[in-house]
């Protein structure tokens, strides 16, 4: 379980996370929605220990990771996989090297065994046989899927997705959503997705939480989200420019 308690974070005097409280149960797919720049990605980076909060706790299975040393954080991250907004593939490596890097660094598997695992993961994301391709040869959608294969390579307990469908055409976006849903159905992995794509949120989420002005202002099932009376959530899910959220 991930328990975020009173987390605050500011950058150069600008508060991004005001007082975030959120509990994510094991095996649950939680989608965090919110406007661009509201701090969703910052929250995700706190959960995996890339950023430390100014105050508050982030408990992973009962351990507060905000007090972890760098070494303890590296150990913890072996249980995590993360898909970045731009995929963040290593462009000096081939697709196969990207997907197999974690296995090569942290396991005693032979090259043949790693190659087999890489092949399997790429097949699962619908990209069989592209191990030798360079990252520069891939389309945006392919990069995201390779990024997903890399995130899943170590069989993580928690998988984090940072805007997985941003910048993709609707069909490719749905393909990515389907892959995430399939992952949730097949495994007991805990999934956290941050997005401003409400279609994806409904499709993927067991729970949807909304981050607004540095706080979680709503947390409920997709059905509860659709029928909420909260005017901020309503404005966001209907995509209206009229309402309490001011267009900047």
């Amino acid at each position: 379980m991930i328990d975020i308690v009173h987390v605050k974070k500011s950058f150069h005097g600008v508060q991004v996370l005001g007082d975030v409280n959120l509990r994510i149960k094991r095996g649950q797919a939680t989608v965090i929605i919110g406007r661009s720049g509201c701090g969703k990605s910052v929250l995700l980076k706190h959960i995996i220990g890339l950023l430390r909060p100014d105050s508050g706790e982030i408990n992973i299975d009962g351990h507060d990771i905000t007090s972890f040393s760098k070494r303890e954080l590296f150990e913890l991250r072996k249980r995590f996989g993360m898909l970045f907004q731009g995929a963040a593939l290593f462009d000096s490596m081939s697709v196969g090297e990207n997907v197999g890097l974690g296995l090569r660094e942290h396991t005693d598997l032979t090259d043949v065994e790693i190659a087999a695992k890489v092949r399997q993961r790429l097949k699962e994301v619908g990209l069989p046989g592209i191990e030798e391709k360079r990252v520069a040869e891939l389309s945006g959608g392919m990069k995201k899927r390779v990024g997903l294969a890399r995130a899943l390579a170590m069989d993580p307990d928690f998988v984090l997705f940072d805007e997985p469908t941003t910048g993709l055409d609707p069909i490719m976006a749905d393909t990515i959503n389907e892959l995430i849903c399939a992952l949730n159905r097949k495994t007991s992995e805990t999934i956290i997705v941050v997005t401003h794509d409400i279609v994806s949120a409904y499709k993927i989420g067991d729970h949807i939480a909304m981050l607004y002005e540095g706080q979680i202002i709503f947390n409920g099932t997709p059905e509860e989200t659709k029928h909420t009376e909260n005017p901020i959530v309503r404005q966001f899910i209907t995509g209206s420019s009229e309402g309490p959220i001011q267009a900047l």
Partner: peptide
């Protein structure tokens, strides 16, 4: 700037 270094960290690689 393309988050590749963050990606290394998430793979538990220093």
């Amino acid at each position: 700037v393309t988050e590749q270094i963050d990606a290394l960290e998430t793979l538990a690689i220093d």
